[in-house]
């Protein structure tokens, strides 16, 4: 495609992904609240309060981050200073880079290049790696335990993530996200979407710290976990990168498993519906579950996700070998 258009769309995707990421976080918070007999962030502010605090609180997740940006940042004396300070920024940079490789309706961005699937998944992994490295450098025991849990969970969730992505890639014989995203579904491919999509959904729970897989952020057990020593701008940067990761995971899911919703601009309404449905499912899982112990989560993954992943690989190979008509 036209390089100029690519550059323009790369510039455009930044505000789009920020807005969508904030909206997704808002939606999770609002749905959670409504399921729990709470109000949550108010969509239309009460008339007597609106002159004071604005007419809506839809942007509450963003306000939370902006508030942190204006706070003092404390760097503990026991921390490895460079790693401690740069990790949040690296995490943010990698999460922003990742969204350049994931298509948005009407904007292929960099997803057309041949190995964009591998690049995108590595960038997402890199972003998460820096949420482990920073806490390890903080010198706090809670940070260390939180980082350890994050690493264990990461290893566990990664399996489902990689296998589900690559079983689709194997079946469609391409490593370019754009090719996968614009390839119309044929009827038997829905089977693959179901199996691999479920695996990917479970992996997303771990990556996005949705209950029952939010052990790294279990405040009752390990205070603030990885973020215990972080404050001010550095914490805000971590939260900002989480917003981008949320957007990246949702749009990657839609691009890979629900083609062609991410290809043409005309698919935008369906893309929106799919995103809201996905967020709704995430919120329901979040509401229904307490937190697993990390070793029990691992057992659960071995019992449920590994067979599912193997199944999706088998289905993918079935496509390749022509056992099913593509």
């Amino acid at each position: 495609m036209d390089p100029l258009f690519t550059i323009i769309s790369i510039i455009l995707i930044l505000p789009i992904s920020l807005v969508l990421g904030v909206l997704y976080s808002f939606l999770i918070r609002k749905l959670n609240a409504r399921f729990q007999w709470r109000v949550g962030p108010i969509i239309r502010m009460y008339s007597d309060l609106s002159p004071v605090i604005g007419s809506t609180r839809i942007w509450q997740p963003l306000y939370d981050i902006l508030k942190l940006m204006g706070k003092d940042t404390v760097i503990p004396g026991s921390a490895h200073k460079k790693l401690f300070v740069y990790s949040p920024y690296m995490s943010l940079i990698f999460s922003i880079l990742a969204i350049f490789f994931i298509p948005f309706p009407g904007m292929p961005l960099l997803s057309e290049i041949p190995y964009s699937l591998i690049i995108a998944s590595y960038l997402i992994i890199a972003s998460i790696m820096f949420t482990i490295l920073g806490p390890v450098a903080s010198g706090s025991p809670w940070g260390a335990i939180g980082a350890r849990r994050e690493a264990e969970l990461f290893l566990v969730a990664e399996l489902g993530f990689v296998v589900s992505l690559f079983s689709v890639a194997i079946a469609k014989n391409s490593l370019s996200i754009w090719t996968l995203a614009s390839n119309m579904e044929s009827l038997p491919a829905i089977l693959l979407t179901l199996v691999a999509g479920t695996t990917m959904f479970v992996a997303m729970l771990g990556k996005l710290h949705i209950k029952p897989f939010d052990m790294p952020e279990a405040e009752c057990e390990i205070v603030a976990g990885p973020y215990t020593e972080y404050s001010g701008k550095l914490l805000g940067t971590y939260f900002l990168s989480k917003v981008f990761i949320l957007y990246a995971m949702v749009s990657l899911f839609i691009a890979i498993f629900l083609p062609p919703f991410s290809s043409g601009f005309i698919w935008l309404p369906l893309y929106a519906v799919a995103a809201v449905l996905l967020i709704f499912l995430l919120a329901v899982v979040q509401v229904l579950n307490p937190r697993y112990l990390i070793r029990k989560a691992l057992l659960w993954y071995l019992k449920i996700v590994v067979p599912l992943a193997i199944l999706s690989l088998i289905v993918a190979f079935a496509f390749v070998l022509g056992w099913m008509v593509v």
Partner: peptide
């Protein structure tokens, strides 16, 4: 045990 829903 991390179950905010039960709490509420």
């Amino acid at each position: 045990i991390g179950w905010k829903t039960g709490f509420h």
